[in-house]
Design a protein around this nucleic acid. Sequence first.
DNA 1: ACATTCGCATGATGATCATCATGCGAGTTG
DNA 2: CAACTCGCATGATGATCATCATGCGAATGT
Lengths: 203, 203
Amino acid sequence: MNAKEHKPSGKRAESKDESRQRILAAAADMLREEGGGGFSVADVMARAGLTHGAFYSHFPDKDALIEAAFRAAFNYRESWLAAAESAPAHERVPRLLKGYLNAKHRDRPAAGCAFAACAQEFAHGTADQRRAFADEIETTLNRLTALLGDKDGNADAASCESEVIGLLSLCVGAMSLARAVDDPALSNRILEAALTYGRQQPA
Amino acid sequence: MNAKEHKPSGKRAESKDESRQRILAAAADMLREEGGGGFSVADVMARAGLTHGAFYSHFPDKDALIEAAFRAAFNYRESWLAAAESAPAHERVPRLLKGYLNAKHRDRPAAGCAFAACAQEFAHGTADQRRAFADEIETTLNRLTALLGDKDGNADAASCESEVIGLLSLCVGAMSLARAVDDPALSNRILEAALTYGRQQPA
DNA sequence: ACATTCGCATGATGATCATCATGCGAGTTG
DNA sequence: CAACTCGCATGATGATCATCATGCGAATGT
């Protein structure tokens, strides 16, 4: 048997696992709130209720944490999509748009879309981070395609892909812009206009 | 007369102005290539052919440089838009989309859109940086509205605003995603799909 | 119970920077 | 041309971090 397969169990291992989860959760929040450059290892550890020294027995380095935290930020994708799935086919796009392009999402990035929070920073990230980004994009597109593809007469695959990618791009772009501007009125205009634009898109 | 209005001239002042322009140009490039956190003051100064010590006689601090460099990155907006203006009204949107959503733009951020390069970082930036972002967004939207608003029968103002903002969001989002992913094939798919999506938008 | 393991805390270490202090030499002024 | 100005270079300084080294104490296994 492979010696590497040792999966220790017991109170100690369990506690370490809980610590790891707290670290990941803290990092996933901070990553979306401030970006990977916006917090230090010590910051995350403090948020997780630990001190900086313990970090390196959980992750090899900060870059690995950022990658893992990014992936962890998609743990709620299914529940996010479930809300749209429960709607009739022609209502799904509007519902997804509304769930994304709103002030609450803009103002609470820690609970929101990691694409909109991380895209630009990951463009200069490690190979692993960029692969993670691509993985999550692929998965998200697949799930959206499954959700919207069997809409009515289900258009050809190409047109469905462009719709799904277009919607995601629109959402990510509008949220990025809405968060970057200073003027709240302009920020709201951006969210509302993007919402309108996305709804006008033909089948 | 106001003592503050002194505008020194002469060989020395001229040379300082040239230095400032070189610093700004270098910073505008690096800001779009690597983000504000991706370069040091010494890096920009070296790229401008100077050493780090000279920096603080040109700008009060790095944040101010980033703001100025961001604004400077829009110096070419008019020539960028001129290409679209020379096209017949119904060709303008496709031409703008094509000029933005392509591999060359994706691969040379230093010569490209500063919105797509900076949005997420500016969301955590200084007040001045965020104001600069809003200013440039406003100006860009106004110019685009002037360009696309008198399209044919020119739709009502609200619909034009949502189209212009939607297009910009779509472009910024797609470029951000295309740059963040690792897989070149996926990156191309994103650019192409967003192009298709943007073209399908009704008048 | 004893020896061992291991999660975590404390406390370096070294690197990277932003920013400041000083000095020289070319330009400018009278 | 002598006194002065000022752009730029060199060389600190201090802060912030990522990462590593060490040690304690609780959990584990014999």
